[in-house]
Nucleic acid binder design. Structure first.
Lengths: 193, 193
DNA sequence: TTAGCATGTAAGTAATTACTTGCATGAAAG
DNA sequence: CTTTCATGCAAGTAATTACTTACATGCTAA
């Protein structure tokens, strides 16, 4: 009980600090301080600093991926489906924002994270291609390179996510939902036959 | 002569290492080693480690921005213009890839870089909005939220850039030009009236 | 030739960092 | 009541880091 709470608090603090300042700059002292525990407790739980990050990675691998949820609520109405997907995609990325940032920052020190993160667009791409193919067979979208189309939608959402996650409302103060709606409206209109 | 070359080599090495490993993990020793100079030379040139990064930021502020080049070669043919812009945008981001990465990694330690980087999409957004408005008046694109449209195109290109810059061909081995072409084709088709 | 200037070399310093050890404490479980 | 177990606390260690100082060397320009 107390144990679990302690370890969790340490992981949480590490996740925050490492994603903010990077692995090296996030000292064990500062992590322990933010978690509200003694520094030795950190080592007693995770052995060493790398062990702490391993725990973070492991926790992430249990995180429910977006993938399964994509095919749910499919209406075979292009714009509606893509908006539904894009909203989910965006909020999913936001929910794992810290992981994504660590993945980008520590791709050299912890290539495992990079791989884990790179897997997300890969899985989503496959799902989207299948969806686009089916939509094409139903005569609802025109013939395009479905892989490129899938990658584009993913890039679109990822771009919006990065902009909001790192720059906030500096670039634009449009409400996220509104922005995504217009974004998807243009994109799906470009796909319809 | 030799002075300039030395300072430049140090800056180059720092740019590479800091963008790869982050500011804290890129030690002055490793930077000097990569630059092929003695560590003291680094301090003689830039005073301290922060001074070195200041020099990097300053060098970037002199970098020719994409902005002016956008309005050149405008044909008022939507797809052609947007493809031309997107290719320029993408390759511009690639050319300042290391700056962008530092900007994302060191947004806390060096907020100036973040601001500098955030300025890019802001300027481009303004240019794109003007272009879209003019295209609308010419009856070539339909009525949409031009700001959202501009942000979407920027997010699209940025997403492609991030994917290629960090994940290489893991997600897809489609040739960049081909990918951008399909990407822009869909997007512009979604805008035409 | 000489004077200056950029750089290399060697040595050192104070601070920080990851990590350890030994002991005290307090709460829960048997 | 006692044992166990997670944690706190104090102290310390070896390595690393940013940075300094003093002196030697070699190239360039006057």
């Amino acid at each position: 009980m107390t144990t679990k709470g302690t370890a969790e608090r340490i992981i949480e603090a590490a996740l925050q600090l490492v994603s903010e300042k990077g692995y090296t700059a996030a000292t064990t002292k500062s992590i322990a301080e933010l978690a509200g525990v003694n520094e030795v407790t950190l080592f007693r739980h995770f052995g060493n600093k790398r062990g702490l990050l391993k725990a973070i990675i492991e926790q992430f691998s249990y995180y429910p991926l977006l993938q399964q949820e994509i095919n749910q609520n499919v209406t075979w109405e292009l714009e509606q489906d893509l908006l539904n997907f894009s909203l989910k995609h965006f909020h999913f990325l936001m929910s794992i924002k810290d992981f994504v940032m660590i993945g980008f920052k520590e791709s050299i020190q912890f290539p495992e994270i990079s791989e884990e993160i790179a897997n997300i667009p890969l899985l989503i791409k496959k799902e989207l291609i299948v969806y686009f193919q089916e939509m094409h067979q139903r005569g609802k979208i025109r013939e395009v390179d479905f892989e490129a189309a899938a990658l584009s939608l993913i890039a679109l959402n990822f771009g919006h996510f990065m902009s909001r996650a790192r720059l906030g409302t500096i670039v634009s103060d449009l409400p996220t939902e509104e922005l995504l709606q217009t974004s998807v409206a243009i994109f799906s209109r470009g796909l319809v036959s």
